[in-house]
Design a protein around this nucleic acid. Structure first.
Lengths: 274, 274
DNA sequence: CGAAGGTTTGAGGTGCTTCAATTTTAGTGG
DNA sequence: CCACTAAAATTGAAGCACCTCAAACCTTCG
């Protein structure tokens, strides 16, 4: 019914009607099983500014931000509002996407409602790798976002563009390595180490300089961070407070973090003392 | 120094001398940082039987066990003894391997010695995917094992064998999906759920029929399981005992598990009650 | 037989969760 | 612009699942 064929990428909010945006086969299926408070800013119109993600200094960030080289004419970039679903678990994969701007969230759900945030997709990241032709996560935008679609065939068969094919493959391989890092995070690190690591990585990738300090904006809510790190929102909040009280970070309005002692934070992330 | 060029797969135990087997650049590097009790059966010679892994009924297991289709002449299968290292974290990737028989263990280490078992490689699994050309885990055999090597180029450039290229790529994509499952495991499941899930998956893949029951042999030690599930050996052991006392499983000599109530075990793995 | 690893079991501590209440933030309409 | 409302974030108190430390047991092998 929603199928658009292979002509153009299929993005969930085909319509601007907020009700319709949510109603898809996959979504109804989900609703039958669980109810999650998950609609953070679902359909507010924040058209003016790209809220959180700033393009960092091209000098500091190398490969990840570069658009994928390609001799193929690209399909038009997709623009989405916060709270838009790109795809759901179980959907057939027709397109991969490179995040051009904004932030997306990949999640997986357990039957009883427990949730795991698999990853946050920042500019440069490729998302939507298929396994057996299907998506195995849900993907929702956290901010205004732009995404560059690539045909699945470019990954799987090359489809006449070996450079693009190779770039997508390398992205998949890097993904595997990054996920292995995250295993360590989930399985072996304490709450403080988890949050410190999270902040370090994020600051590195998308932090902004701010006089002597660096700051990073967090487009995701506390429970997203919790579900990413395998903690509860309360623990995340308490750990934030603890870092704030020890003057390692400062927090502005919950969603902006200023790194006051980067070295100390890095130390915590590696498990130096506690 | 150990480089063999690109002519044949480089396997760590080039020599049968047990001392030399352990001494490699990477390994010495590791020793400088940590000391881990990690040498389970390192150099015992159990030549006669393939101890733990049995080829399951081809009807039940579909794709994973099938050897990869290829028009290219394959390099000779590698045969390794228990405790042999196939590669170390940081090594350059020249070859990928498909496990033909036996079981291997992929691990990653933290500077302070904490360890995460990334995966166990069973027959049919492809291991050794590169990221930026390097291995990001250590790989050690847990049993006698045979491995079919594939050139890294077959994954990355195709190298004239599109079928093999595609098969390796699909394996990488399935790997991503499987790792996402494991995120859920590490981040959101209780000790009982973790162990139950682990036993269910293993029984499904490599269990043997045994009259009315099914049994599965565990080639890895308790601490391997613990480091895989993000627990301690003590907790793993206690959870085994608990499952045994509730007659859901029986344990023979620590390394053989008989599933007495498969439905109950599956229930536990999904979080039904506790 | 004795030594060495691996496994199990016990006792006690703690880091994180759970449940609950309060404060803060963000969105809405007058 | 400012109340009003709902959701998110924080804080507190209590509990428990898992960890840590330690000892005993079991298996394997020289």
């Amino acid at each position: 019914m929603h199928k658009t064929g292979r002509g153009e990428p299929y993005l969930y909010p085909k319509t601007d009607d907020p009700t319709l945006q949510k109603i898809t086969k996959s979504y109804i299926y989900k609703l039958m099983h669980i109810t999650l408070v998950n609609q953070c800013h679902s359909d507010t119109s924040a058209e003016d500014t790209l809220m959180y993600v700033t393009i960092p200094d091209p000098g500091t960030i190398a490969a990840p931000l570069a658009p994928l080289a390609s001799s193929t004419p690209k399909p038009a970039e997709a623009r989405l509002r916060p709270g838009a679903f790109l795809y759901y678990e179980g959907d057939e994969v027709d397109w991969l996407y490179q995040v051009t701007s904004g932030v997306v969230r990949l999640t997986r759900l357990l039957a009883d409602g427990r949730r795991q945030v698999i990853a946050f997709g920042y500019p440069g990241d490729i998302i939507g790798f298929p396994a057996d032709g299907q998506h195995h996560t849900d993907c929702e935008t956290l901010t205004d976002a732009r995404l560059q679609p690539f045909r699945r065939a470019h990954l799987e068969t090359g489809e006449g563009d070996p450079v693009l094919h190779s770039a997508l493959l390398q992205a998949a391989l890097r993904e595997i390595s990054a996920m292995q890092d995250h295993f360590m995070m989930l399985g072996r690190k304490s709450a403080t180490e988890k949050l410190a690591s999270f902040l370090c990585v994020l600051t590195d990738r998308v932090g902004q300089d701010l006089g002597n300090y660096r700051q990073v904006k967090l487009p995701m809510c506390r429970s997203d961070i919790a579900d990413f790190l395998g903690l509860t929102t309360e623990t995340v909040s308490r750990t934030f407070t603890q870092l704030r009280k020890s003057k390692i970070i400062a927090i502005d309005q919950s969603h902006t973090v200023i790194i006051q002692k980067p070295t100390a934070l890095l130390g915590l992330s590696l498990g130096d003392l506690d």
